[in-house]
Design a binder for these strands. Structure first.
Lengths: 155, 155
DNA sequence: TATTGTTATACTCTATAACTATA
DNA sequence: TATAGTTATAGAGTATAACAATA
């Protein structure tokens, strides 16, 4: 019966999965980037948007935490933050408890930016995904839920 | 009954899907990049590897076709190719049928590189995906198959 | 005249190394 | 002495604009 089953519905080995993910994920990523770039009103790169989203969700994020989450080195993160502070999207201040640390917060302009950018990317993505049937969308949801913990940074 | 069903198993709207994809895909991408970077023997960026893979599969790829597939502008693509030619991974020659066009081919070193890089990234990805159950892997396969055509470049 | 590709130029992203300040 | 972050510097990646060659 096991044999029969695997003959009908090819069993998904980890290698099969890996191949598929490596084929499809970069293409999706590229579409996200392109969509973000098209939206002239937004002007945020994917890492910048991820950083703002993280700061938005976390209370009093430090630079190290952010760098860990985004997957950048500390100097690279620091430099990105330079730009976002200059553009008035976030504030960078000293942590009074430990003055080595930095506390990052969104400004209201930053919150507005992140919301616009998220809405735009989500709308563009939703438009594509709307072509799928209900069952396929369910599979996407299940797949993303399954994959998320495998690629988690920062608990 | 529709109500009951959606109460038990929340219906996946396109917006839900979009949110999930936008949350998870960048994290996966980052892991791919990091994995590639760690492999000191490889030294290829994700776009470079995609380019080499495309050249590998297509016979006599032109620059425009490649740029379209990778999602880069022609000048950017040309510059990337400069580097890959310099490193001896591909050859760039004139198309005798239409001398405006360029024909790109892998060298044997290039084929070796692409195979090593693919094996390495696939192994790293497979290792992660191996933590999933059979059903989850099936969902991943189904999701990727469903998403692929939505993000296809170049028919 | 349209198509294919290259050159010139500039800006963003990211890294490593060396440094400063606080704990 | 260890940790958090910044500055200095350099290299890769990408874009737009202007150009050259071929069809």
């Amino acid at each position: 019966m096991k044999l029969l089953e695997s003959a009908i519905k090819t069993e998904a080995t980890p290698e099969d999965c890996a191949r598929e993910v490596l084929d499809v994920v970069p293409a999706i990523m590229q579409a996200i980037r392109a969509g973000l770039r098209e939206h002239r009103s937004v002007d945020l790169s994917v890492p910048q948007l991820r950083a703002l989203s993280f700061i938005d969700l976390s209370t009093a994020a430090s630079l190290s935490e952010l760098a860990e989450h985004i997957g950048l080195t500390l100097p690279s993160m620091s430099k990105m933050i330079d730009g976002l502070v200059e553009r008035g999207l976030i504030t960078r201040s000293e942590d009074p408890q430990d003055r080595r640390r930095v506390v990052l917060c969104l400004t209201s302009a930053g919150r507005e930016s992140v919301e616009m950018a998220q809405a735009a990317t989500r709308a563009a993505m939703a438009e594509r995904v709307a072509h799928l049937g209900q069952e396929q969308r369910a599979a996407v949801m299940e797949a993303m839920d399954a994959l998320r913990p495998l690629f988690r940074r920062q608990g």
